[in-house]
Simulated scan of single mutants.
Amino acid sequence: MTTQLPFSDEPPECVNESGSWCQYVFNVTHNEWLAASAHWLVAKPLRILMILVIAFLIRYLARRVIDRLTRATGERTPTLLRPLKERAPQALGVLVSERRAQRARTIGSVLKSIVSFVVFGLAFILILGELGLNLGPIVASAGIVGIALGFGAQNLVKDFLSGMFMMLEDQYGVGDVVDVGEASGTVEAVGLRVTTLRDVNGTVWYVRNGEILRVGNSSQGFAVAVVDLPVAHGTDVAEATEILDRVVREATDAKPMSDDVLEPPEILGVEKVAAEGITLRATVKVRPGRQWATQRALRAKLMAAFEDAGIQAPLTRLLPPPQGA
């Protein structure tokens, strides 16, 4: 009677498979266990390593392409932004380049994140397949976890999507003067989640993109400088209007204001009649962002011209006469 040994002296059957890893390992090591386990010890690790190498290579090449498309050189618009609509006013000067560069960097950052997520996600699924795991329950669990995270982080997703659409549509950018409801001021930075504003008092506001329901942009296309001059009741309106017309046209035709003026001024005349006085109005279409400087300059010239002509402001008529006069 013979006893069967726990380890057989016969080589594994896979050794006879021509070109297999089992045959190769057995010929090199003459070890039956290593030869039988060659598929797990050599073949699968090499496949997994190849998957990772290919994934890193694809990610590297994709990121290089994105960097090339989003690179801004001098005044040149990044290639990625050329098909997209741009509303950057040229009056911003050097801020136009900064605005384009920041917009391109932000969109490029999103594209890089998407590429990394897709490439490494596919690589992870392929590696699990190589390990022989059943992907069905894993995919189902991932879907449930994704839904749960979506509900928990819906505000973050809302901010992200709003910021993405805002970037693509170029609703506003660095250097624009905007009113977003709760805050208004000059845009200092634009991100996918938060927009940074600085108001006239120097306060910095951080506004979540998902909370912005409307945006008033004073820096796109053109702006209108509205100049209202109040005069007292009893003023010769025709004379005041003539002075208003003359001063505004002379000022807008002269340097440096003429560089900002896009069209001849409009003298609208009497805008409002109230108990305290009469308001005269003139409007000038100017480059975006230059309306406030134009208004201040015109208002100063008009006040001096009205004073020289003896045209009184409403307040001088409303003051009571001094006692004993």
Score class of each variant (00 low, 15 high):
33 W>D: 13
294 T>K: 06
104 A>P: 08
79 T>A: 15
217 N>W: 04
308 D>H: 07
66 I>C: 04
218 S>A: 15
238 A>N: 07
127 I>N: 09
272 K>I: 07
13 E>Q: 14
270 V>F: 06
283 T>K: 10
204 V>Q: 10
89 P>A: 11
178 V>H: 06
282 A>G: 06
304 A>R: 09
86 E>T: 13
236 D>K: 00
146 G>E: 01
313 A>C: 05
3 T>F: 12
128 L>F: 15
138 I>F: 03
141 S>N: 09
297 A>L: 08
246 R>C: 00
49 L>R: 03
100 R>N: 05
91 A>H: 03
221 G>M: 06
189 A>Y: 10
256 P>C: 05
115 V>P: 01
36 A>E: 14
277 G>K: 00
62 A>G: 11
66 I>Y: 06
285 K>P: 03
52 L>H: 08
73 T>Y: 07
311 I>P: 03
286 V>M: 00
29 T>F: 09
224 V>L: 12
271 E>S: 15
66 I>E: 04
141 S>V: 13
143 G>Y: 08
24 Y>F: 15
91 A>Y: 04
65 V>G: 06
307 E>A: 09
290 R>N: 07
37 S>M: 10
4 Q>T: 14
48 I>T: 06
5 L>V: 12
24 Y>M: 13
23 Q>I: 03
269 G>Y: 03
177 V>D: 12
284 V>I: 15
213 L>P: 00
35 A>Q: 03
302 L>C: 06
62 A>C: 13
240 A>F: 11
311 I>K: 04
66 I>M: 01
54 I>M: 13
263 E>P: 01
104 A>M: 03
216 G>W: 02
169 E>G: 02
84 L>T: 07
124 F>M: 09
142 A>P: 02
299 R>M: 10
306 F>W: 06
246 R>D: 10
63 R>N: 14
320 P>K: 05
258 S>R: 15
253 D>Q: 06
116 S>P: 00
82 R>K: 13
29 T>G: 04
101 A>M: 11
292 W>I: 11
75 E>A: 13
252 T>K: 02
145 V>C: 11
20 S>P: 04
226 V>H: 12
275 A>I: 03
194 V>A: 02
120 F>K: 07
21 W>Y: 12
242 E>V: 10
81 L>G: 07
80 L>P: 01
23 Q>Y: 00
2 T>L: 11
258 S>T: 11
184 S>F: 08
82 R>E: 07
219 S>A: 04
227 V>K: 07
231 V>E: 01
1 M>Q: 09
6 P>Q: 05
145 V>R: 04
282 A>I: 02
1 M>W: 12
254 A>T: 09
150 G>C: 05
98 E>Y: 11
133 L>H: 11
223 A>I: 08
60 Y>F: 12
